[in-house]
Structure formats: structure tokens, C-alpha cells
Nucleic acid binder design. Structure first.
Lengths: 233, 233
DNA sequence: CTCTGAAATGAGAGTAACTCTCAAAAGATG
DNA sequence: CATCTTTTGAGAGTTACTCTCATTTCAGAG
């Protein structure tokens, strides 16, 4: 085939839906979120950011109007006024336009600042649900479109990064580092995987029910449940 | 693009790695496992089964010899002496050759026969880990190859059905039915998703460590952990 | 302002995983 | 043997990516 994956693109730095990154490194655009006020901005960087935003904006528009599968990369590139080549330099796959975001650094940062004696779940309540609530206020519209796409397009649903174990590695490591736990402890993997999937499921159920309120509420519910409910369910 | 997914193939009935199905329905081949001694076998059915087995066998051989990405569907089809068209009639995607199996009916059956007052996790210990141990004895070699592929090929790793929430729906429903619980209870979704991912992670860690013994041991460990350990971890 | 190197872009050709249609082959059935 | 149904093969088409290379554009030094 051709469907590339895991190569080494310039356009990304590796992050994802609601802060669960699939790390990558360097190049064209190193996305970071404004909420995490980053330093300066060279001309080149500004241009790259604009390009990335243009691609994403046009892509969402087309996805909304004619559907994800019905929109070709070529169309997106044309609408964003870049070449198809450039599109792929910014997003490794069409799916990544929807799945990628820039919140991971923020989450990691919050984890490093959290209480050193917190449990994994407690830490996540602060580092993931907190910013998510803010995010939903600030960019609700875009988030809603994303979530709806993720629910309705099978290929996106499956790749939802909240569900991708791999994406939780950095988060787990940050947690281990902060709390002094062994990063190689298999329980860390189990916990991250289990919780990630439960959160993902909570998000899906929120989207399926019409995207009312904040998904963070559902996620809170899911966290509470997996924290103590599995023994008796 | 072309990468189809979720269409409506004739060749499958919907099942998956270690019994976590992505249901589908009807047609050419309705795979079932011998362990679940099914009734008769018409000439046509036997042929279909043979074809399916031939495809899988040749595919595994080629994957092992030259790698998953380096093997084209065309090569597999040729080795199995069928046309590429036929290949896709049996397996919706190349990945499914590795990800699909026929254990789901067995697991469902065991769940329906299990204790009606068991918790979800208890039920899984019996219905999933039990047969898995047997399976590992009976078809160890093939299972090991599958697992190794699933660990080493990124696209497979991500799609590992143990991780696919969707695949757990039927299992959840069987559980709800057996124990008289509400199948729409969101906690059922959370539980299935969380446990599925933890089990998947256990399997991966087993494969990464060289596939020694049975993955069921690791999975047992993971189940024990998510059952009670998340509150304090 | 100019020169120089580095990074981003565009163009275009190539690969391979699917998709779809249709006619031919092969079991099933009576 | 005749007919109906299901499976198969052939082949053409779409599109997501991949790779290479020439061109453009920014950065930084003089």
C-alpha cells in the first residue's frame, strides 16, 4: 500500500486528541498551544502555524460539508492553497487532521506540578479534566466537530488517541517521574491503558448523546467507576 | 482513498484476536472454531474453509519471511492460489488476516454458561483466560507468530482487537444478559473498554518479553490489578 | 543590501490497498 | 441433466500515501 504511518515528518511534533500524544520530533511546525504561553515567534514559525491552521480549517469545513471519506486530500490541499505534498508534511495522514492537537505539553506540565503523592487517577483528574473543561469553553465549536467526526467515522473512532495505548506512554512517564514510581512497572501500563480506554469511552458516549455540557463530566464518572467499581460490577 | 473498512464482506462473520469480535454477518465463510464442535460440513463449506486456511497459512509464512509491510496482498493471493479479489472476499483488509480469529462464539457460550452472579472480571477469567490457555497449548506456534506480528507492526498493534472497544460490545451484552444487568448501563462500556485495554497491554508485554509461557498469566495479573489496584496506585 | 546556507514548498511520478462490476466456473437442488 | 445460487477471476479505477529533486523563501552574517 502506501498508507504511511510512523515515519518522520517535519510538520508535526506529535500530540493528539485531548492530550495524548504519539510523540514525534522536530521540523516544520512545532505545534504548541496558546494556553501554554510559549516564547517568541519567528516569521517562519508564524507562517507555518498559519499554514497548519489553514489546512485544518479547510479540512474541517469540507469534512462537515461533504463528509470525511468523501473529502480527498487533494481537495483539502487545494482549499488551503498548498500542494498535496505540503499537506502530508504537516499531517502524516488525513486522519491526523482530526486526531492531532497540541495539549500534551500542557498536560505533562500540569502533571509535573501536581501533588507528588497523588494516585494516577487523582493526577489525571487535575491534569486532564481540568484543562479539558477550559478547552471546551474556549474552543467548543471546533471540539464538538472533532468529537462528532470521531464518533461517526469508523476509522477515526478506532484511532482515537485517547484509546491509543502508545499515546499514554509519556503521560505515564511523567507520572512516574513526579511520584517517584518505577516507570517500568507493568501496572503503570495496565493503568494507563485501562484508564485511557475508559476515558475514551466516556467521550464517545458524550458525543453520541449530543455533545451537551462538557465531556469532562462523563469522564469524571468513568474515572470514579474504574477507580473502585470494577471489583463489584 | 481506497482503504476500505467496515463494509459488508461475504467472507467473514466477524470475530477477532482472542475472541473479541467486530461483528459482521453472513456469506462465503462463516468461521467457527473446532473447539466448539459445530454440526455438519457441506462440500462448499469445506472448500471455503480450506481457502481461508490457505490464505492465512501463506500469509503468515510470507509475513514471517519478509515482513508484514513488505508482503503485498497480490503475493499472498498468488501463494494461496486465489485471485486478489478473492483475498478481499475473505479478509476485508490485510490486517485482518492477523487480527481475525474464531473464538468469539466460544467465549460467548462460556459466558452464558458461567455463574449468573459473577462480576464482569470474574466472568472474564473463566470465559477468556480459560480457553486462551487451552488455545496456547493447541496452537502455540501460530499464536506466537500472530502476537509477534501484533507487537512489531505498528498498524496491527493499534488495531489489536483486544483493544477495540467496539469488539467488546457483544461480550458485554452476553454478560449483561447472563447476569440480568442493564446492557445500556454506561458502566458496562467503561468496564469493557478498560479491561479490554488492560488485557491487550498484558498480551503485548508478554510478547515483548519473548512469548514465554502463556499470556494468560500476564492477563490474570492485569485483571487482578485493575480489579482493585487502581484506587491506590 | 547582499550573499549564503538551511528549511519549506511544489511538481510529478510511483506504489499498493482497496472498490466495483461483470462474466464465467462450480456446488446445490430437483 | 437442467437450473438456480454462490463463489471466483479479471480488470479497470480511486486515492492515500512515498520519494525525489528542483525552486522558492526565510534567517543571519557581513
Amino acid at each position: 500500500m502506501a498508507r504511511g504511518r510512523g515515519r518522520s515528518w517535519p510538520g508535526r511534533d506529535g500530540c493528539t486528541t485531548i492530550g495524548v500524544m504519539t510523540s514525534k520530533a522536530s521540523a516544520p511546525d512545532t505545534p504548541r498551544h496558546p494556553m501554554l504561553d510559549e516564547p517568541p515567534l519567528s516569521l517562519r514559525e508564524r507562517k507555518k502555524r498559519r499554514t497548519r491552521e489553514a489546512i485544518r480549517r479547510e479540512a474541517y469545513r469540507l469534512f462537515r460539508d461533504q463528509g470525511f471519506d468523501e473529502t480527498t486530500v487533494e481537495e483539502i490541499a487545494e482549499a488551503a492553497e498548498v500542494s498535496p505534498s505540503t499537506f502530508f508534511r504537516y499531517f502524516p495522514t488525513k486522519e491526523d487532521v482530526v486526531l492531532t492537537d497540541e495539549y500534551d505539553p500542557l498536560i505533562i506540565k500540569l502533571m509535573r506540578e501536581g501533588p507528588a503523592d497523588a494516585t494516577f487517577i487523582e493526577m489525571l483528574r487535575g491534569a486532564v479534566l481540568g484543562p479539558l473543561r477550559v478547552l471546551m469553553e474556549a474552543e467548543r465549536e471546533e471540539m464538538v466537530i472533532r468529537m462528532q467526526l470521531m464518533v461517526s467515522v469508523p476509522s477515526l473512532r478506532k484511532r482515537s488517541q485517547l484509546q491509543q495505548t502508545e499515546g499514554w506512554r509519556m503521560l505515564s512517564e511523567a507520572f512516574a517521574e513526579r511520584t517517584g514510581k518505577d516507570p517500568a512497572d507493568p501496572r503503570l501500563r495496565y493503568a494507563a491503558a485501562a484508564i485511557g480506554s475508559a476515558l475514551n469511552e466516556a467521550m464517545l458516549s458524550w458525543a453520541e448523546d449530543g455533545c451537551e455540557g462538557s465531556p469532562a463530566d462523563r469522564m469524571e464518572e468513568a474515572l470514579d467507576f474504574v477507580e473502585t467499581g470494577l471489583r463489584t460490577f
